[in-house]
Simulated scan of single mutants.
Amino acid sequence: MQKSDTLFASPLSSVADFRFDETVAEVFPDMIQRSVPGYQSIINTIGELAAAKVQPNTTVYDLGCSLGAASLAVARATQDIPCNIIGIDNSEAMTNRCKRIIQSFSLPTPIEVNCQSAQDTEIDNASMVIMNFTLQFIPPADRENLLLKIFNGLVPGGILVLSEKIRHPSVAGNELLVDLHHQFKRQNGYSELEVSQKRAALENVMLTDTFAEHEARLKAVGFSDVVMWFKCYNFTSMVAIKHAQETAGE
């Protein structure tokens, strides 16, 4: 039975930085559905993208796989495409629970789950890389090098699916989107206290970029085509495509 997220329901004397520990892993499915607008639509579309773009005898990397929702969507969508699926997360609590969840399914394509950072993961012969709300937790100084490694590890025609919470470039516009998102969370049963304490916990660990910054960085490492396919409030998902003729840094 899915456990409800009540991690920030009681007043805290001091709010520690957010960590993907065992307490978060235990309530993560409820937390993500109630906190991220369109999350299930994003997961479903990752499966559709996998069916269209995963190439035979290549690898799919799910960087920041958490409990494996995106990896499972890919596995179900690629039943007739021989490929490898590798889930990566630097939280041992997440990967341990992810492995148990995956083992409960009978999958045509097995999923390998490893506990390590995205920065330490080698990307090779990939036709699809997924970063579903992961890059925002990577130190800003590491982001471009990580994306360059992903670009270099993709085969021609490969794609990067990048979902992120973004920052609007104007203060007023950003405040509007933040207010709408907080109202979304209230409508999903979170109290004012929970919204406030969760925001404080994330303040130092989730450092967001604007869409323009994401697009510029992706193009700087070599992707010429960046398609925003989803946006709701300050949440977006985009697909960066490595065309056949592209090389790093073009």
Rank of each mutant, 00 (worst) to 15 (best):
L63E: 08
K231M: 14
V195K: 03
T247E: 13
A75Q: 05
I43S: 09
H168T: 02
P37I: 06
T236N: 11
H182I: 00
L146Q: 03
A50T: 04
S41T: 10
S14H: 15
P139R: 03
R34P: 00
Q33R: 14
S196Y: 09
S71I: 09
N152L: 12
L7N: 13
R143A: 09
E122M: 08
P11Q: 04
Q116E: 13
L180S: 14
D62R: 12
L218D: 04
G68E: 06
L207D: 01
E194W: 05
W229T: 13
A216D: 14
E215Q: 15
S170I: 05
K242L: 11
T23Y: 03
V24M: 14
N152V: 05
T78K: 00
G173V: 08
I159E: 13
N188C: 04
G157T: 09
E215W: 02
G68D: 08
G47V: 03
D89L: 07
D124G: 00
V226F: 01
L107A: 11
E112K: 15
L135E: 05
S196P: 00
G157D: 11
L12G: 03
L147M: 15
L12M: 15
S163T: 08
N44V: 00
Q183S: 13
L135I: 12
M206C: 13
Q55F: 03
M206Q: 15
A50D: 05
V161N: 13
A16C: 10
V155D: 09
N114E: 13
I150H: 08
S170L: 10
T121E: 11
G64K: 03
D142H: 12
W229D: 13
S191H: 02
G189Y: 00
A126R: 01
T58H: 07
D89A: 04
F230R: 07
F133G: 01
N96F: 01
V24E: 11
G173N: 10
